[in-house]
């Protein structure tokens, strides 16, 4: 092999990084091939830790809303208080729905790891229905409050209440939109690696919303109903 052709081959191997595996690697190219595999391995884990960091920033968002509620939650402006408004039975049903949706999502993930498409889709659908039930009850509760005159404009307590609980509800709404999107994806393309990664991200999102709801029903509803 002449010197010129060796240089050309190296240049080729640098240009076509994707084709590296197919080529017979010259002695000098061994390290870059290994490096490329390492890159892929990190990209795989990179999505999950990146999504986790997003969830942490979302956690800060909720922390600020909780702080707002903590500060303003007792300023009723002679309007209705939590004890007047909250129906704890409804909240208990809501909590149960969200908790059930968490475990059914867990079952969907277990079926996914066993590569069972239909069962995965089935559990995802049940999760979505529980989520929709949660939203329906929350919207019913909100409309009930508004009909009684307890609108967000009524007092600082109600403003912060609607902002905090509404933001959580909005998250659940987008979670359901995401869930339906992924169900379509899984139905179309099967449980491919990309879809599995997406489902894992949504899993974290969904369980995270349940964790936030623990804070909501404790600080807002239970403590509010006591006052």
């Amino acid at each position: 092999m002449s010197c010129g052709s060796k240089i050309r081959e190296r240049r080729n191997s640098r240009q076509g990084l994707d084709r590296m595996h197919e080529m017979t690697a010259p002695p000098g190219a061994t390290a870059p091939v290994f490096f490329e595999q390492e890159q892929h391995a990190q990209a795989e884990g990179g999505t999950l830790i990146g999504f986790w960091l997003y969830l942490m920033s979302d956690c800060l968002l909720f922390a600020v809303l909780f702080a707002c509620y903590g500060v303003l939650g007792r300023n009723y402006a002679a309007g209705p208080s939590g004890a007047d408004l909250f129906d704890l039975k409804l909240v208990a049903v809501n909590t149960a729905l969200l908790l059930l949706s968490s475990i059914t999502y867990g079952f969907a993930m277990l079926e996914m790891s066993k590569d069972r498409l239909r069962m995965t889709l089935g559990w995802l659908a049940i999760t979505g229905l529980f989520g929709a039930g949660f939203l329906a009850i929350e919207l019913y509760e909100f409309s009930d409050f508004i009909h009684e005159g307890a609108t967000p404009q009524r007092s600082a307590f109600l403003s912060s209440f609607f902002t905090l609980v509404g933001t959580h509800g909005l998250h659940v709404t987008f979670g359901i939109v995401w869930l339906v999107t992924l169900m379509v994806q899984v139905r179309q393309f099967g449980l491919i690696a990309d879809n599995q990664r997406r489902l894992m991200c949504l899993s974290m999102f969904w369980h995270f919303l349940d964790v936030v709801w623990i804070g909501v029903f404790t600080f807002v509803y239970l403590m509010g109903a006591m006052r």
Binding site: Q37, E38, A41, G106, M109, M112, M204
Partner: peptide, 16 residues
């Protein structure tokens, strides 16, 4: 694809 098949954060890729 063993690494991707398990739910949650706990898994690391085989290469790693």
């Amino acid at each position: 694809m063993r690494a991707a098949a398990q739910p949650g954060l706990g898994q690391r890729s085989q290469a790693h």
